[in-house]
């Protein structure tokens, strides 16, 4: 047991701790950036789908179906190894200077998760009865105001549980970025393990960090949903 704690202390000290902390930072940055990207794209997809233009709706459906039926790891590899090779040479060189792994990981994860988010929001909006729109329009709200004050708050409340689940999924999926060489928490943990041979201790630290942030997200989400329910339960 004391051997175990000594190992743990070694992993949590000096250079090794630095590597792990840098990994955590990278994981959080990657998660935050791709979350924002995913949300922006998802909201645009929802709005495009609301236009009821046949071609646009079909395109959105194709986008969603493509991203949900291909493994996230394959999407990452397709972006990093495949699509990047089609870029003009100058752009490729420029990207290499700008930390290409990180950029491609954020883009691939963001685009992929956008498909899930847009479906969550859409099914949340669909659950609102059309009487809500009609009533708010009859009361004199314009399209934007009825959207903003009546429909969206209810839609977001409906879709919150699955949005949170998929946010946790996005956070966990950042670990896939190690396959294309992003030095995030999983990659950093492997490095520490390679230096120290303290396999058990290094993975334990990483697992606890992942678990902490995932549970934090789930807990915060549940709290937020409760609060929203209270505000709108009238």
């Amino acid at each position: 047991m004391s051997q175990f704690t000594q190992g743990l202390e070694k992993v949590l000290q000096g250079d090794y701790l630095d590597i792990i902390i840098r990994g955590i930072k990278m994981t959080l940055e990657l998660a935050a950036l791709s979350w924002v990207l995913a949300m922006v794209i998802a909201l645009s997809l929802v709005v495009i789908r609301l236009t009821n233009n046949k071609v646009a709706v079909a395109l959105v459906a194709a986008y969603v179906s493509y991203h949900r039926n291909i493994p996230t790891l394959v999407q990452l590899m397709l972006w990093y190894f495949g699509i990047s090779s089609l870029f003009p040479f100058e752009l490729q060189m420029w990207l290499v200077d700008q930390n290409a792994e990180f950029i491609f990981a954020a883009v691939a994860l963001g685009l992929c998760q956008a498909a899930y988010f847009s479906e969550d929001i859409r099914s949340g909006m669909r659950a609102i009865s059309s009487g809500q729109t009609e009533a708010s329009r009859a009361l004199g709200f314009g399209y934007l105001r009825s959207m903003y004050y009546i429909i969206l708050p209810q839609g977001i409340r409906n879709s919150l549980p699955s949005l949170i689940n998929h946010t946790v999924l996005l956070f966990k999926n950042t670990s896939l970025a190690m396959a294309i060489g992003v030095v995030e928490l999983t990659y950093a943990t492997r490095e520490v393990e390679n230096y120290t041979f303290l396999t058990f201790q290094s993975y334990l630290v990483a697992t606890l960090v992942y678990l902490f942030f995932s549970l934090l997200l789930m807990f915060a989400g549940a709290l937020f949903a409760k609060k929203l329910n209270k505000v709108y339960a009238r």
């Binding site: 946790v168 966990k172 999926n173 950042t174 670990s175 896939l176 190690m178 999983t186 492997r190 396999t199 058990f200 993975y203 990483a206 697992t207 992942y210 678990l211 995932s214 549970l215 789930m218």
Partner: peptide
């Protein structure tokens, strides 16, 4: 259930691996 849902699959692969 919460532990399995809270950690990435890659982590579980590495745990199993060793």
């Amino acid at each position: 259930v919460y532990v399995m849902r809270g950690i990435p699959l890659i982590m579980i692969i590495f745990w199993t691996y060793f």
